[in-house]
Design a protein around this nucleic acid. Structure first.
Lengths: 334, 334
DNA sequence: GCTGGCACTCGGTAGCCTGGAGTGCCAATG
DNA sequence: CATTGGCACTCCAGGCTACCGAGTGCCAGC
């Protein structure tokens, strides 16, 4: 554990570096408020902080920059729950006051909101439909052998898949399928849909199982939305870094497992190498699950350079996750 | 119009520049196949081509690079309809053979396919639901005052919106809404849905109109999918260009109107400044509408640096648009 | 009309230098 | 004895120069 003075110095380094993005020297620190010693003392302390792994020097005779560990300490011990500055919270408020429409669209928009407020990339992972209960199902013919099967789930999601019929079916027969599914599926999860009783009519049963099968498959993977990826180009000036980060951001499964992984370790912030995704070593992630009636329906987060403004970003994610949850739980009036 | 020799020289410059990305000098051209004159002659011809606006010199004593006009001539007069190289067409084939699922997902995947094959950013604009005819509608309560309204359209799209009821409604009353809509909406466009006859029950009519209203709104704007934006970071090495291009790519409405605009001018390729979107001056777009049964259901395209491999990109877009159309028209067996 | 030759141009790279910011260490100090 | 002012040292960033090479434009000769 660090004594008070080291803490103050570390804080000053982190804050200065976040603000200026260039290594910070002892003199700046000595002038910073909260530090009341001379630059020489600061130098000594910084040398110690470096040995202990909180700071690093890009090269001799340069200032210090925080290491992942330094940021970690900063985040764990120095970021007060704090609240959002008024402009940002106004933007968030305005967004949720006017937001409407379907879940997917809302999540997508949330991504833009987060990106816009934090100036970082935003990631929103939607609910997976697997565990949700079916409210309603319907099969609709589209002419020829194509049909669409639509399910409304209890969490508000709508899953729909296009299926191909083995042969043409009349409207009447298709409504029979619809009716059968509608009679047996609601109240169950899509996953458990397999054991819907048979009708005895081979063709109908066949369509039923195809329909359930495709719905279950499509519900199995959670939708991911990414917004503001372009801000990564602003965050780094090494083109190579930009390339690799952007490339990684496009691989949605990487993002999903990153987010899942961070949450499963009980973290809400993963700094640099902590999250273990190599191309994103120079990035930090802040995530927060979204709960509706105690059930997790998704995750919101931002992803930015390790030298991001943690207090602001954490507060934003916090507020957005909260408002989004409330927004979803009561369908609009909050 | 250019004589044969100038044509050959221009072609050589374009091809060389596309391949190497650096200004090409007279000596290279003289060695290129298809050009049988000395470098001195090439120099003279290039000077003329420059005066006529087909080539430009970054600075005195550098090689020439094609101007937008140069690319335009190349595209118009030198790109044979040609076909895709076998590896690429195999990738496309494999994709459409295994692709399945709902329209949106398919379009999204198409975006990745295009990006992957061409190594450029891909843009896919989906169908707008306005003009499509409703096949089926349903209103499903979600508990409390929330409800979801789902419509299956004739083009295979599923529109769904969450709506907020003025007060709680029983399942029975909601199914009454469903039934009423289902009785009157199918066969019409969502746009014309406003004049569905009233039931006389104020509450029901109210819900009906809200439902139709939200569906119509959500159907009005076409979905846009962008993939492979990260490749722009590979295409340019000026960080600023990357920033502005990426930023522009995130503004979906810009993309939609860009695509629409290019198509409406009857073009399939827009080069550099031709498309009039300032931040994308160093980019070209190749678009192709997707038709299903003679009706346009969307547009696929790629967006890359003006010095992109036009023949390859054009062929890819062509093939993908075609296969996608066939894929959509018969629900899977092509 | 084409071509070889030549003088000229100009950007990019490498090498050099210098100024400044920063460090580490030490001796002095309260 | 912790703190501090001072000092010698380090090293990067940026400006300067020189040079090389690729390329051009022009001209005289074929």
């Amino acid at each position: 554990m660090l004594d008070e003075r080291k803490t103050a110095i570390l804080r000053a380094v982190v804050e200065e570096y976040i603000a200026t993005a260039s290594p910070v020297g002892s003199t700046h620190i000595a002038n910073a408020q909260g530090v009341k010693v001379s630059s020489a003392t600061v130098r000594n302390e910084m040398a110690v902080l470096e040995q202990e792994g909180y700071l690093a020097q890009p090269h001799t005779s340069a200032g210090r920059i925080p290491t992942d560990r330094g940021y970690r300490f900063f985040v764990d011990h120095m970021v007060a729950p704090g609240q959002l500055d008024s402009e940002a919270s106004q933007q968030v408020g305005a967004f949720f006051d006017t937001a409407h429409g379907r879940l997917e669209e809302l999540l997508h928009q949330t991504t833009n909101l987060l990106a816009h407020v934090t100036h970082h990339a935003a990631v929103v992972v939607g609910p997976r439909g697997e565990t949700a209960v079916v409210r309603s199902v319907q099969v609709v013919g589209l002419g020829g052998r194509a049909a669409t099967v639509v399910a409304v789930l209890s969490n508000g999601t709508v899953e729909n898949e296009q299926i191909e019929l083995q042969g043409e079916m009349s409207e009447v027969r298709l409504s029979a399928v619809s009716a059968h599914l509608q009679a047996h599926l609601p109240g169950r999860t899509l996953d458990s849909g397999r054991d819907v009783p048979a009708t005895g009519d081979v063709e109908l049963d066949n369509v039923c199982s195809i329909a359930i099968q495709s719905l279950a498959t499509s519900a199995a993977d959670e939708p991911v939305f990414v917004g503001g990826a372009a801000s990564m180009a602003r965050a780094f000036d090494a083109v190579d870094t930009v390339r690799s980060v952007l490339h990684t951001l496009e691989q949605q499964y990487v993002l999903v497992s990153l987010v899942r992984d961070v949450l499963s370790r009980g973290l809400s912030v993963a700094i640099g190498a902590e999250h273990g995704v190599a191309p994103l070593v120079s990035c930090s992630v802040i995530v927060k699950p979204v709960f509706v009636d105690g059930e997790q329906v998704g995750t919101v987060g931002v992803l930015g350079p390790t030298r991001m403004d943690y207090p602001q970003a954490m507060a934003t994610v916090e507020v957005v996750s909260d408002r989004l949850g409330r927004r979803l739980s009561d369908g609009g009036s909050n």
